[in-house]
């Protein structure tokens, strides 16, 4: 295992090392110590490597991730796993605002809570939050799944497209055009798989599903006041 100490190694050097790994690398296991809230840690990775960050990170940790598994043992600042393409990002603590924003693929797991705007404008990523999520989560979310074992804040799924949102606890309020939908067998299967992959101890039957009412897809003169 490679251990990199950010107290002595510049952040850019670390990211360059991680980004230089290829599909065939022998250096598949990395540990980063002393992150102390640094920004843009382990961003732009594109290799099947495992990176463990021992501590808490700042803005945009594991952004644009492809293939890699990035684990943060503390909490993550704003924009963790932003625009992730594939791979897995696991935050053992809490995640700040817009976790997984615009993500196109892969799995983001937050073991604690995620704050506001979780999964904003996501386009295919799966996000599983063991705790609760803040307001405006799933805003304009287009594809993928958001799974919340705790509660959801205000305006969940506002202006939602085709992302599925599963919440076990309470929803403070639904955003415009977001509605509760029936749980069909295929949704139970999707949820069971996500819960298992995220190491979440919960039964899919305990969740409710929310999705788009698809009323905002086309301009409707009778709804002019709502746009």
């Amino acid at each position: 295992m490679q251990t990199i100490d950010l107290a002595t190694t510049p952040l850019r050097d670390l990211n360059a090392m991680l980004q230089a790994q290829t599909d065939n690398t022998n250096q598949t296991s990395w540990e980063i110590v002393n992150p102390k809230g640094a920004h843009a840690l382990a961003v732009g990775l594109d290799a099947p490597i495992e990176v463990t960050v021992k501590g808490s990170t700042g803005y945009y940790c594991a952004g644009m991730n492809k293939q890699a598994t990035v684990r943060v043992t503390g909490s993550a600042g704003p924009g963790v796993a932003e625009n992730m393409m594939s791979g897995t990002v696991i935050v053992e603590g809490d995640a700040s605002q817009y976790a997984g924003a615009t993500g196109r693929g892969g799995l983001l797991v937050v073991k604690g809570n995620a704050s506001s705007r979780c999964g904003i404008s996501m386009k295919g990523i799966d996000i599983v939050v063991h705790g609760s999520i803040g307001h405006m989560s799933g805003f304009m979310a287009q594809r993928g799944n958001i799974v919340v074992l705790g509660d959801a804040g205000d305006a969940l799924g506002d202006s939602l497209y085709e992302t599925r949102i599963f919440v076990r606890g309470t929803v403070k309020s639904l955003g415009a055009d977001c509605v509760e939908k029936e749980m069909r067998p295929e949704h139970i299967e999707i949820l069971r798989d996500l819960l298992e992959r995220a190491g979440a101890d919960a039964s899919p039957e305990e969740f409710r599903r929310y999705g788009s009412a698809r009323k905002l897809y086309n301009f409707n003169i009778d709804h002019a006041g709502e746009y």
Binding site: K36, G37, S56, T57, G58, Y59
Partner: peptide, 8 residues
Amino acid sequence: SEYRALAN
């Protein structure tokens, strides 16, 4: 404003 400020 950020965790960095508290890290030490």
